[in-house]
């Protein structure tokens, strides 16, 4: 406290008490308090089937940024309802899926995308599982080859088999 000018006002003190009691989250933005334009489940008119498909797909794949972890599709937050309105308007105006996604990313960042973009820093996210699948296949082949050799060496004496096992394990 370098300056007494910034002492906490009574409201902040009340907030602090609420925080201690766990009744209120002081750091969280108050995003959900206001109703928005398109409530969940609101029937909407579209000019074409494609527009409706595009709208429905977008609200499933875009994240409500004030919510904990919810798509726009199911969120009751005011912001989600507004963003649904924005997507609806842009869809009716003839914007493509890519244009709408670009619009959202330009304002809210990549965080809004439930389908992360494919680029340098998400390369391992998309490729990783398939690299692991290949690695799993190689391990499978390696182990099977080893055990095949063991199955063939059945006629060896126990000592010889043990020696072979050691040999193979250390390779």
């Amino acid at each position: 406290m370098r300056s007494s000018r910034w002492n906490a006002p009574p409201v902040a003190a009340a907030l602090a008490v609420a925080l201690v009691l766990g009744l209120w989250s002081v750091t969280g933005p108050d995003g959900a308090a206001q109703a928005g334009r398109i409530p969940v489940g609101m029937p909407l008119e579209f000019e074409t089937e494609e527009q409706e498909q595009q709208y429905r797909r977008l609200i499933r794949e875009l994240r409500c940024t004030v919510c904990q972890n919810q798509a726009l599709d199911e969120s009751n937050a005011g912001l989600a309802a507004d963003l649904r309105g924005q997507i609806y308007d842009m869809t009716l105006e003839g914007n493509s899926r890519e244009e709408i996604v670009e619009f959202m990313v330009a304002r809210y960042g990549d965080f809004v995308l439930y389908r992360p973009p494919f680029r340098a820093d998400t390369f391992m996210l998309w490729i990783g599982p398939f690299l692991l699948l290949i690695a799993g296949g190689l391990v499978w082949a390696q182990v099977v080859r080893q055990r095949q050799a063991m199955a063939r060496s059945r006629e060896l004496s126990p000592e010889e088999r043990a020696a072979l096992e050691r040999l193979e394990r250390d390779e």
């Binding site: 499933r60 994240r63 960042g109 965080f111 439930y114 389908r115 992360p116 820093d121 996210l125």
Partner: peptide, 20 residues
């Protein structure tokens, strides 16, 4: 954990959801 990895290296904040 991938979003956490990017966040830890302060690269960007991303979401990984059902489509992925």
């Amino acid at each position: 954990l991938y979003p956490l990895v990017l966040d830890a290296f302060s690269m960007s904040k991303i979401s990984v959801g059902p489509p992925y």
